[in-house]
Design a protein around this nucleic acid. Structure first.
Lengths: 345, 345
DNA sequence: CTGAAAGCGCTTACAG
DNA sequence: CTGAAAGCGCTTACAG
């Protein structure tokens, strides 16, 4: 229970004294204002910084110059393992990479929607701007976005289908609706008339958009094709298989199963295999995302490749530009998705 | 190019004035020191905080109380997509979750080993402690750890096999060596004598440990079994298949293929299928990690389940305890792994 | 080119 | 119970 000995961390004054210069000169060296400091002095200061193990108190600097060097990433999700989702993880990876390269740090905080207002990252002022990935139904999501907008700081929201209501807000998303359309068109061309879509219980706007695109495709075809949507408790193997079993117990085989993402589609496919249904001969199957891990199922899944990592990068760039120029250069970025034909259709 | 209008953010003084109290009273409300403030005053202050949209400047508070409310997560990896790795992602998810629940924020920065010294997070003092996930060969990794230790702040290192050299350091890892042994024992019991291990070019200490465990198992068996190790440029499907093809062009089929992780094992398995080799009849295959995404390959892969998310949680708890009590309660935590028999052995 | 001083927004020991 | 004041470690406008 002993506390640390109170060995004091070196400050800029310690460095200044050791180098025989003023604190201002040390500050100039630290901030690269080299027109004010001779090369010899610079060397001396740098040696003392090294020797004393001096590190700048980011807090003191930020307070003085009223500038933060971190971006907040808020993930609103019911699951306590919010970041464990692969899509989210890829987005965060791309974002972190761009920000880190520009000497910004990424501050991650995940929470449920009702915890947003009470979270540290919102009650305190400590980041230069926010990025947000928000799950949930429209109403709740919009409440969360509204709360973030009211912070009056630059905000990038991922995978949000609705138009930016103006403000200091930028939407970065991919064309999930277009992806849904591509799936519909592809299957209609193969004369599928009976579609079964499987979505997870946790509402994600991107998944709603995929469904909307699929519906549009079917409607454009004259509306002769029928779409049934069933909901799985989660994306897990067991839950998907259970809901598929339940549905097929009372319904005929559909012409095609469209999974909201690859894990769901693959779980459904394996269920069919275990019940001697052939894919694609009896039922065609399509997933969504096309991440590496799901290229390993055989037959290879037909899917739509998502640009999750690129979304993160795009958001990072947008945020950096915003901080630089004072406004977002575009209110919305929509990245394309790519249809990826496998052997299941 | 217009800068933001200089609308000033509300400070504690603004709140104090609006509520007709002193700044100290506002501070007391903010910090829950309610013995000093009457319920009526508290209500009034809270109303003004709400009305003015006041948020505390975390920098000013941290500077004053000399206490940080963020933990730094350093990921040292050659890949620019450092965080995109699923194992790392799971670790970060578990860590973020525990820290967030304790009102700590997680500050993520990824970089190559040679960028460590020049990174913001190291040159500045802005977090209460560090967690680190470090790839690379022993020498380079130890250099990185050394640099982090010299910061003289609490440090948790993930998946590092070597003993803590004392200091303010805690190792959190899983029993990868034991996992390797389990794989060896399992295959030896099935009379395998010719092992082929496939590892990625990027050195990870955890993978070295898996190999070491496998070697120990073989040695304990009298050393009649032979182990060949080949290296794939990356974990990607194409690279693994290429190296397997190359090897098998000049070598007979092994009795078993041990992948350093599931993606590698699965890619090898699919290569064999494409060349009419039966699994497990002709060649047995084992992977490592057992993440959900790889339960979808058929036949279901025999693997060892990793505790990546739990590693992150354990590290978070260890760090919080350390900050609370002044020392790590244990210099090392080793989480168990579980053998997960599938249909490929 | 260099130094002394003010001030960023908080918290807290001290005096009333 | 409340207020005035000092000070955390920086940066920067100002004076020499």
């Amino acid at each position: 229970m002993t506390r640390e000995p109170p060995r004091r961390r070196a400050t800029i004054k310690d460095v200044a004294k050791a180098a025989g210069v003023s604190a201002m000169t040390v500050s100039n060296v630290l901030n690269g204002r080299l027109q004010f400091v001779s090369p010899a002095t610079k060397k001396r200061v740098e040696r003392e910084i090294e020797r004393l193990g001096y590190r700048r108190q980011a807090n003191a600097r930020s307070l003085r110059v009223a500038e933060q060097r971190s971006i907040g990433m808020v993930i609103v999700d019911e699951s306590p393992a919010f970041l464990a989702d692969f899509f989210t993880c890829q987005v965060v990876a791309g974002l972190a990479n761009v920000l880190n390269s520009a000497d910004f740090t990424l501050t991650v905080q995940g929470m449920r929607g009702d915890q947003l207002s009470s979270s540290m990252i919102m009650r305190n002022f400590e980041v230069a701007g926010f990025c947000a990935m928000i799950a949930g139904p429209d109403m709740e999501r919009h409440q969360s976005i509204q709360k973030l907008v009211e912070l009056d700081q630059p905000l990038v929201v991922f995978q949000e289908p609705f138009e930016s209501a103006g403000g200091d807000l930028c939407i970065v998303r991919q064309d999930d609706r277009g992806g849904g359309q591509l799936i519909g068109d592809h299957l209609l061309a193969r004369r599928v008339t009976d579609f079964l879509a499987i979505i997870p219980a946790q509402v994600w706007p991107a998944i709603e958009m995929r469904l909307a695109g699929l519906r549009e495709s079917l409607a454009a075809n004259g509306g002769v094709a029928r779409l049934t949507v069933i909901t799985s408790k989660s994306e897990s193997f067991a839950d998907v298989q259970e809901v598929v079993a339940q549905h097929l117990a009372t319904h005929p085989l559909p012409g095609a199963i469209v999974g909201a993402n690859d894990p769901i589609a693959t779980a459904a496919m394996l269920y069919l295999f275990d019940h001697d249904v052939r894919v694609p001969e009896d039922v065609r199957i399509v997933g969504f995302n096309g991440f590496e891990a799901h290229r390993y199922a055989r037959p290879r899944l037909t899917t739509v490749d998502s640009a999750a990592y690129a979304l993160g990068e795009r958001a990072g760039k947008a945020m950096l530009e915003r901080l630089e120029s004072g406004r977002f250069e575009s209110a919305e970025y929509v990245l394309p998705v790519h249809f990826d034909a496998g052997a299941t259709t």
